[in-house]
Design a protein around this nucleic acid. Structure first.
Lengths: 105, 105
DNA sequence: TTAATATATAAGAATATAATTATATAGTAA
DNA sequence: TTACTATATAATTATATTCTTATATATTAA
């Protein structure tokens, strides 16, 4: 894919307030979907769809852990995406069952 | 306006291949609308509307010169917008009447 | 196995986006 | 003034986006 089109896809992925909040929520590490639903205050499928969009742009990665799915920022980001992430005020997560179980409190 | 919403607005403004091309075309300095129409290969009103979107996001500035209007990049950019601009391969303009008249060849 | 839980996908509706054509505006030239 | 040119705005249309509800899938627990 053309460089400009890759850029367009990635920028489209981050040009939405809810998806920016998702990125802000991932700045401190992995978070499960249930927590993100609480933060965004929209339905679970809506969050799932937003996450997919970020994933398809290679901005976030997922890890399956039982029935839970943890999302995290990709370590490798295009410079223009990294700068966006850097600018975001982190949103801190009140840890849910899934993370407590792993002793990640 | 909330920081996140400003970011959203600016990122929406640049998350389009044609508007990225407009920014790439402005990297070497002021360009008039007629040149930009040639580059994008869309109608003049379409270009005008895209330019407005970039202008409303404070990413570009305009200068009126007779019937022509010259657009240029704003010197002051949010870091995440500047990084995007830096990443763009400049598009060079085959100078049109308006710039030649000013001896800017 | 069945039930419960976490997440994903599908379908549909409301809204937003980005193009087009037609028209308006504003400046210059005759 | 009238005609011409460059650009902007309006109206319309096609498409994309983003939400919702309903349903499917996959894992764990009983």
């Amino acid at each position: 894919m053309n460089q400009l089109l890759i850029m367009e896809k990635q920028l489209k992925a981050v040009s939405d307030a809810n998806r920016l909040k998702l990125l802000a929520s991932l700045k401190n590490g992995e978070v499960c979907v249930c927590d993100l639903v609480e933060i965004l205050q929209v339905s679970q499928p809506a969050v799932s769809q937003q996450l997919r969009k970020l994933k398809e742009a290679d901005i976030i990665l997922e890890r399956k852990k039982g029935t839970w799915k943890h999302y995290r920022l990709n370590d490798i980001q295009a410079p223009y995406i990294q700068t966006i992430i850097d600018e975001l005020e982190p949103i801190s997560i009140h840890n849910c069952a899934c993370t407590i179980e792993e002793g990640e409190v």
